[in-house]
Design a binder for these strands. Structure first.
Lengths: 137, 137
DNA sequence: ATTTGTACTTGTAAAATGCAAGTAAATATA
DNA sequence: TATATTTACTTGCATTTTACAAGTACAAAT
């Protein structure tokens, strides 16, 4: 009847209810920069997510159409996860978090620094290029 | 000895460890658009944070210099919370979350819509103006 | 002197997390 | 062909976090 699943209609609040935790954006980050990952790939991330949490997050993100499952071309045993358009559009958020984090935390990895240098040169272009790369199947 | 409090040195991961939960950015949002709030003001938000969670988050955010406490000019009983420079600089993240959320959730409040219309007209100018407003004590 | 307002703290049940181990099906290997 | 291994999960359980209700301490208003 009523749409009362949200604590409020504030877009920030609704967004946080979906991916506002310590893991969802890590998964999304990995998919954003690796394009496609298997479950095993995601487990390999430096942050060491545990298997049950990963499975739970993937399920929620899929149900909310942020990611989707794909058949692996070479194996029926493997599953490919990728971002949907809705997921890809989280890129500007990830970029701003990256930029803020770069400013306030030390020992940023070189890869990240290089990427952010590119971002700072021309943010819009970076977003366009990255999104385009992700969009091509 | 070692700086091993972080799961990784990824700026996204470090950021999420600090404010990657369902409440921190709600508090920061309120401070961003109200400039200064008392504890009671923050409790009044539509999302209905509970008192112990609010106290815990305020403590963490203060310890990490995202917010600071101020004396209330009219009362020793009240406490004013405001964003530090570090906190104010979360504005671009809040804006991008707002824009994403606006696109994927329904029934966005009119105030928010109006604000985002302004943002979309000229994002940089909006950020500059909002930050300036917050900076003036 | 008593009540109210404000910023918390405390207790406790419920939920989420983190870790270790287990399972089922597909594939690789002997 | 039989066995082992890989892959994507699930399950059980201890620990931690959350949510709700109530309580406390001090300032200020009545």
């Amino acid at each position: 009847m009523s749409k009362d699943k949200h604590r409020s209609n504030c877009p920030i609040s609704c967004s946080l209810e979906l991916w506002g935790d310590k893991w969802s954006l890590i998964i999304i980050r990995d998919l954003m920069f690796a394009k496609q990952c298997t479950y095993g790939d995601l487990l390999k991330s430096e942050e060491q997510i545990s298997t049950n949490i990963l499975a739970a997050r993937l399920k929620t993100l899929e149900q909310n159409m942020v990611i989707e499952k794909l058949e692996h071309p070479n194996s029926k045993l493997k599953v490919l996860y990728k971002l949907t358009k809705k997921g890809i559009e989280l890129l500007p958020i990830l970029i701003e978090i990256n930029l803020w984090g770069e400013k306030y935390y030390a020992d940023i990895p070189d890869r990240t620094k290089a990427l952010l240098k590119d971002v700072k040169k021309d943010k819009k272009s970076f977003i366009r290029r990255t999104m385009k790369k992700l969009d091509i199947d």
